[in-house]
Design a protein around this nucleic acid. Structure first.
Lengths: 151, 151
DNA sequence: GGAATTGTCTTAGCGGCTAAGATGTTCGGC
DNA sequence: GCCGAACATCTTAGCCGCTAAGACAATTCC
């Protein structure tokens, strides 16, 4: 690395580490407030962020859980009303997990607050600076994804 | 929020969300490679990031675990060589958890790779841009911490 | 049509977590 | 100094989620 002083890197490393720890804490707390375990919330997040509905098996792959565990996860999520099991009409062995958006209205305040925090942070920057930050976040997510995959 | 278009906020929200999911995955994988559960690794991280050595009770508070669970966590961390139990000489009821840095040499490659990723990302920005990013990270961590505390 | 494959669910067994109580240490009033 | 209350950690019982292995149902390939 060229003109970067070691202390700069050290500071950035510290931010990363701190941010990671906070993320995990936040994740735990959100799950708690939704009446879910961290595992269940993680699987629900996968289902929400996916393009279409996921199958049970795909959730097992993505989450790293066994298929048996995923059965339990979906049971609990379904009982709590967050998702619905739908048999895939094209392959009736498969179980599609459909997220029921209505159920999230209850927790709107959680996400609103999180978004308000984001807005508050971003409001300290002008348009040009926001572009730098966005470029950074884009790169960071992309690079981080590669890093996670081969860890 | 003033001059910010909705799509910009939407994109930033997406980065946050994606970054969170990746962080949790990374955390899980690092723990796995170190032969620890996510819980154990989380507690170890607390002990590492703390100023001085933490007591068992303080780890329970910070992690949100019961004291009984923390006993088990420290047992496993101690057996694996990551920490050492030291009776506090000033108050012999307390157990200080001392991190043994030597044990982390084995996993140096994990952190080196993570740091290399960070350097790779940062190398795409000039000095002025890095300052913007650092200001952003600082604010983000600070604001996020407040958000986590009252969630 | 029958065998092999695929996707999910079921079950047994293990291990970590909580809650409650046991043990050992310190502090405060006398 | 002594005794009881408060405190820090450990121990135990019971519960619950996870893994692994196998059961069951639907599909695919010959």
């Amino acid at each position: 690395m060229f003109g970067m002083e070691p202390e700069v890197l050290e500071r950035f490393t510290w931010y990363m580490r701190e941010h990671s720890a906070l993320t995990i804490m936040f994740h735990t707390k959100v799950a708690e407030q939704m009446g879910l375990s961290a595992t269940d919330e993680k699987c629900l997040d996968l289902a929400i962020r996916a393009e279409g509905p996921l199958t049970a098996g795909r959730i097992a792959e993505l989450s790293g859980l066994s298929t048996g565990a995923v059965t339990g996860v979906i049971d609990r999520l379904e009982r709590a009303g967050y998702v619905r099991r739908v048999r895939d009409p094209h392959d009736r062995r498969k179980v599609l997990v459909e997220v029921t958006p209505a159920e999230f209205v209850k927790f709107g305040h959680l996400f609103e607050k999180a978004q308000a925090s984001l807005v508050e942070v971003l409001s300290h920057f002008d348009e040009a600076e926001l572009q730098v930050i966005e470029r950074y976040l884009q790169l960071q997510v992309e690079t981080f994804r590669k890093r996670v995959i081969d860890t």
